[in-house]
């Protein structure tokens, strides 16, 4: 039988591809036949989760810190020594830089100097989920922009895509920089992106997000599609703004900055 070297190599190549495809089949897993998965009984449900932050009710530095610590402590968010490596799920920024373009030189000083509480906006039309090449970040049916740390390849396209700077990358191993970790929640390792998840793990247990719980009523959380929900009623009564609405991302975090008392 005559087969020259090139022919042989070609066949060998095809065989390798065949073996590869066959091998991939083995990864298709079957779940144990009689078992099932279900949402937990306590789960809080909504068609569209949203948050209202009434900044008028944040008065002292402590008000902000309490909320931030609540989140960062239970989620094992590290305090990185180098600001370049910073990781944050919820943080503050001044008015001018939180709402670029909204600033004018004559806004009242109490607003100009007011720290604004920032976190992931869980946009309805989220650019980060649009650009992710592996669906590691994706929209849940209840509107939450979820994060699957197991699938993230660390390409950071989502960070380029996010217009709100809500995403942090683990440039180095964060474990050493978590003092006193919460053993109930996992850590993250180097090379994955993380951010606020609206506390999905708490919603499953019937609890509202940690920041909301610790805010003494300054932050509300509820279903935007339910006209009777707390957030909807609050939004109907107070003038609210969102960050960069002109981008069409439809943020689900609403801010009440103040002003009404002055009208």
């Amino acid at each position: 039988m005559g087969m020259d070297r090139r022919e042989f190599l070609r066949l060998a190549g095809l065989t390798c591809i065949g073996i590869g495809v066959g091998g991939a089949q083995l990864f298709v897993r079957a779940r144990i036949a009689s078992s099932e998965f279900a949402p937990t009984d306590e789960r809080l449900n909504a068609e569209r989760w949203a948050m209202v932050i009434d900044l008028r009710k944040f008065r002292t530095e402590e008000d902000y810190q309490r909320v931030i610590d609540a989140c960062h402590r239970i989620h094992n968010v590290p305090k990185m020594p180098d600001p370049e490596d910073e990781i944050k799920w919820i943080w503050t920024e001044d008015f001018e830089h939180s709402f670029p373009g909204q600033m004018n030189p004559y806004v009242p000083p109490e607003i100009e100097e007011k720290p604004i509480l920032l976190l992931c906006n869980h946009c309805t039309n989220a650019p980060c989920t649009r650009v992710c090449p592996t669906k590691a970040t994706f929209k849940r049916p209840d509107g939450i922009t979820a994060q699957d740390y197991h699938r993230c390849i660390g390409c950071r396209f989502c960070m380029a895509g996010c217009p709100y700077g809500a995403r942090s990358f683990n440039w180095r191993d964060p474990k050493k920089f978590v003092k006193d970790p919460n053993p109930e929640y996992p850590m993250r390792g180097p090379g994955v992106v993380e951010k606020c998840t609206f506390c999905v793990e708490r919603l499953e247990k019937g609890k509202r997000p940690a920041c909301v719980e610790k805010s003494n009523g300054a932050m509300l959380f509820g279903d935007l599609n339910d006209p009777n929900s707390e957030v909807r009623r609050y939004l109907a009564e107070h003038f609210s703004i969102r960050r960069k609405p002109e981008l069409g991302t439809q943020p689900a975090v609403f801010y009440i900055i103040g002003g009404e008392d002055h009208v």
């Binding site: 009689s34 078992s35 998965f37 279900a38 949402p39 937990t40 049916p141 979820a146 197991h150 999905v200």
Partner: peptide
């Protein structure tokens, strides 16, 4: 478990 919890929002496992 991981995929059910994180991707499908189902955190109860009902075994055989």
């Amino acid at each position: 478990w991981r995929d059910a919890a994180l991707r499908e929002g189902k955190r109860t496992y009902i075994n055989s």
